[in-house]
Simulated scan of single mutants.
Amino acid sequence: MATLIENDSLKRAQLQDELKALRQQLKVERADRVAQLSEAIGIAKSLGIQKPTTPSAMGDSVRAGDVSLMRTEINNQKIPLYFLGVEVLEAERAALQQRKNDDFTEKRIAQIARELQLLQTNREVEMLNQRQNEDLFLKGVEPLRAEIVRLGGVSSMDFSALKLVSVDRKAMNPTNPVKPKKALIAVLGFMLGALLGILIVIARHFVIQRREELHMPSGSMLQGPSCVSMSCSEILLKD
């Protein structure tokens, strides 16, 4: 209901603002029309136009003669306002100056008045206020009521004779420790230690061998072939 009332208030304020703006616009237009009529009256008086006429009729009036002439004029151009004559212009200006309200000249004002009248009473809010039992209009109430009844029946039950758990035998402390497993730890430690020792020995062997190769003198590598060549030359000399 609060949302409906708030929406109606907002709509009413918007319509009132629009109505005020329209009335101000019509007032300005009426003042502009009076100013135009006053200017046209001055021009008509200076030209001596007392009654409505047309530019062609003014030209024919200059001609003399008793000839009666009926003229039908078709012209797409807008005739200036002062051709209406002083009498017509003054009558219209007097009517505009005496006008107190311009609402009848704008159809939208009547529509706004009708909408404001409809907003005076909100039938939906009235029907909501007249409700006697709100539960009839709530969705999903019946399952909740059934659940409340079911829980009420459960709360009244006697649970003293209800046996939820049965014990086959009481728990006993184990005779042997579950953890740690000493035999498994000893075997794994021995195997890992042996593997680590083998890896250390192999690595040490390769390091020592590499070090000996790097520090070996170059002459020792040529000693064998030179001795062989000397022995061969001695054998040839003896022969």
Rank of each mutant, 00 (worst) to 15 (best):
R12L: 08
Q14E: 12
L19D: 00
R23V: 03
D32I: 04
R33F: 05
V34R: 02
E39C: 01
A40K: 01
I41N: 03
G42K: 12
I43Q: 04
A44W: 02
Q50D: 14
Q50W: 15
T54E: 13
S56L: 08
A57S: 10
G59T: 05
D60C: 10
S68I: 15
L69A: 10
L69V: 08
L69T: 03
E73R: 03
N76A: 13
Q77I: 01
I79R: 15
I79C: 11
Y82M: 13
F83S: 03
F83M: 06
V86G: 06
V86W: 12
L89G: 02
E90V: 00
A94C: 06
A94Y: 10
A95W: 07
D102Q: 02
F104S: 07
R123T: 06
E142L: 08
E147P: 01
S156H: 11
S156F: 12
M157C: 13
F159S: 10
S160M: 08
V167W: 14
A171H: 05
A171E: 08
A171R: 06
P177V: 10
K181W: 02
L188Y: 04
G189Y: 13
G197M: 06
I198Y: 00
I200V: 05
V207Y: 15
R210H: 11
G219H: 09
P225Y: 15
S229G: 14
C232V: 07
